[in-house]
Simulated scan of single mutants.
Amino acid sequence: MRLEGKVAIVTGGAQGIGRSICETFAKEGAKVVAVDMSDLAYTCENVKGYILNVTNRPEVEQFAKNIVSEYGHIDILVNNAGITRDALIHKMTEDMWDAVINVNLKGVFNITQAVAPQMIEQKKGSIINIASVVGEYGNIGQSNYAATKAGVIALAKTWAKEFSRKGEAVRVNSVAPGYVNTEMMQTVPDKVLDPIRAKTMLGRLGEPQEIANAVLFLASDESSFVTGHNLSVNGGLRL
């Protein structure tokens, strides 16, 4: 198993891509800490759920200390938690902007800042930021979301440099999914999804497991020489 003996934290682990990542990691031998704002119901004994608001710095700092105390180390961090508040820029309120920035960008900063020092001290670890095709190419009505997802790609590239300055093998990468068949997407009508499929070379939406497989590669030692990279997993989509 590719993650045997490793401890992984996955934010936004309640459903969708995050849930698939948690389950995949657990099957590969990791002890997984799934983090979200709501209850996390997992039947897998290798996944433990924690309710946590990643925008609350004191809570995040205490959470990181608790995990190190309970498990002894943290080997993998997946920054997956994210929200959308879509609107054209002239209709986007300050509250909509701030909500997305706080969760999608500041939340990533908060938990990485709390976890990274332990990885640097142990001189190894893997951090994966979940970005989006929207962060690579932009999208109408998603100024706030696109800004945060472009931001987490830039953070990964910056942290890859910072966290290896003194020879530490702490790798930081990002994964940019295209449109994925999650619970949220299942409520979107075909008249909206059909043009997206038409713009995708593989002619379909992705599946959460396909994103989890890419994250698993970056979390495992199979990608031991990969850092500062953004992996696009979008079926050939071009917005």
Results as ranks from 00 to 15, higher is better:
66 N>E: 08
91 K>N: 10
161 K>H: 02
136 E>Q: 14
112 T>C: 05
238 R>M: 10
218 L>Q: 10
38 S>T: 12
188 V>C: 13
53 N>K: 13
66 N>R: 14
69 S>V: 01
176 A>C: 04
27 K>R: 15
211 I>R: 11
217 F>C: 09
204 R>H: 13
89 I>E: 07
213 N>D: 15
101 I>D: 04
175 V>Y: 10
89 I>W: 12
18 G>M: 02
168 E>Q: 15
199 K>C: 04
69 S>D: 12
181 N>L: 12
104 N>A: 01
88 L>T: 15
232 S>H: 05
57 R>M: 06
215 V>P: 06
79 N>D: 04
231 L>Q: 02
124 K>D: 05
218 L>Y: 04
164 S>Q: 12
136 E>S: 06
55 T>D: 05
187 T>G: 13
214 A>I: 03
216 L>Q: 14
110 N>E: 01
197 R>K: 15
25 F>E: 11
123 K>I: 04
7 V>D: 09
17 I>Y: 03
108 V>N: 07
77 L>W: 03
233 V>D: 06
98 D>N: 13
136 E>N: 05
135 G>M: 06
55 T>N: 04
185 M>T: 14
222 E>F: 09
207 E>V: 00
111 I>G: 00
133 V>E: 11
209 Q>R: 13
91 K>W: 00
38 S>I: 02
171 R>M: 00
147 A>Y: 01
222 E>S: 14
93 T>P: 00
9 I>H: 05
197 R>P: 04
36 D>I: 05
210 E>S: 12
53 N>D: 15
87 A>H: 09
203 G>F: 11
